[in-house]
């Protein structure tokens, strides 16, 4: 399936979605007034953008409407999408040009880290890269077996230790293996951890330091995986993971559901971290590059109208 078509498919089935209500509103309004702005703000909040960010977007919209002398409500939709696209654009590419380079994948529990790694490994391998996975979630039940299945599916190597062993040691071994085997990319899976747990965050800090020490001159990506179903707490998650491990990008997963993941707009605004990829399913090819315009379109559910 093509870019975002899966999301749209999901959105089509959204019952009672405020976004589609707003589309109705836009179609029925004859002039641009406060009520219209309020409905748009409501739609943004329903998409998990958060009230403060929704208000900020609507303020920009008011200014744009005034500045450009727009009077047709139909044009408003385009303007708001423009604003969101501008906010979200830039920084989507993965920086992995050195061999080896390292991708560290982190996030809270159950968001889709391991699955994303499986998909990404397959994708990079298709691009002709030699990939090694590091099974550094040594904590969760059967996490290593789960990653092994993904490694097999993708046809890439994996470095593993026993359950309960030191995750930093797994990463160290994977980096050593990557150097010895001339691999291009090492992708490190980590255990899910809540950002308010100090000891678990310290463990992550330790993994980061191992990578810094072993491959100081390599390209490194630290990807925070966020579940699109998550609400405003995702801002806290991003802030804490950024402080501990210096995230370079976000992977927004589960966009094949009905949630729209609007909280990434607040994260981009507050923390300046770009979204790099999106997850749209549980299959190996359900990973897509992030496209700011398509994301803005999906927020307002335009497809339904056509």
């Amino acid at each position: 399936m093509g870019l975002f078509s899966k999301i749209k498919e999901g959105l089509k089935k959204t019952r009672d979605s405020v976004a589609s209500k707003v589309n109705m509103v836009l179609n029925s309004f004859t002039k641009i007034d406060e009520e219209l702005f309020e409905d748009l703000e409501e739609a943004l909040v329903m998409a998990d953008v958060g009230l403060p960010t929704a208000e900020r977007i609507c303020e920009q919209l008011r200014a744009k409407v005034k500045e450009q002398g727009v009077t047709d409500p139909q044009e408003v939709r385009g303007l708001i999408k423009e604003i969101i696209t501008e906010m979200m654009e830039g920084g989507e590419d993965l920086r992995i040009s050195t061999s080896p380079s390292v991708i560290l994948v982190i996030g809270v529990n159950g968001v889709g880290k391991t699955t994303t790694i499986g998909k990404l490994a397959a994708h990079l391998k298709d691009d002709g890269k030699k990939v090694i996975l590091a099974a550094a979630d040594t904590f969760r039940a059967a996490a290593i077996d789960q990653l092994q299945i993904w490694a097999d599916r993708a046809g890439v190597d994996m470095v593993r230790h026993a359950e309960g062993s030191d995750p930093a040691a797994v990463v160290f071994d994977a980096l050593t293996a990557a150097k010895a085997r001339h691999a291009d990319v090492v992708i490190c899976d980590t255990a899910g951890r809540l950002h308010n747990k100090k000891n678990l965050m310290d463990e992550l800090g330790k993994i980061s330091r191992v990578i810094q020490r072993e491959l100081p001159d390599s390209d490194q990506e630290v990807l925070l995986v966020l579940d699109a179903t998550t609400g405003q707490n995702a801002v806290n998650q991003a802030r804490e993971f950024k402080n501990t491990a210096g995230i370079t990008g976000i992977v927004l997963t589960k966009l094949d559901g009905t949630a729209k993941g609007g909280v990434v707009i607040a994260i981009r605004e507050d923390l300046k971290v770009p979204v790099k990829m999106i997850g749209v399913g549980e299959q190996i090819d359900d990973l897509q590059p992030f496209d700011a315009k398509a994301f803005a379109d999906a927020l307002f559910n335009e497809e339904e109208e056509r």
């Binding site: 019952r15 998409a47 998990d48 179903t229 998550t230 707490n233 559901g257 009905t258």
Partner: peptide
């Protein structure tokens, strides 16, 4: 239900 769920919780629970 994950306690961190956002606005979509109603759609999920209802369905």
């Amino acid at each position: 239900v994950d306690a961190m769920t956002g606005q979509d919780a109603v759609n999920v629970a209802k369905a």
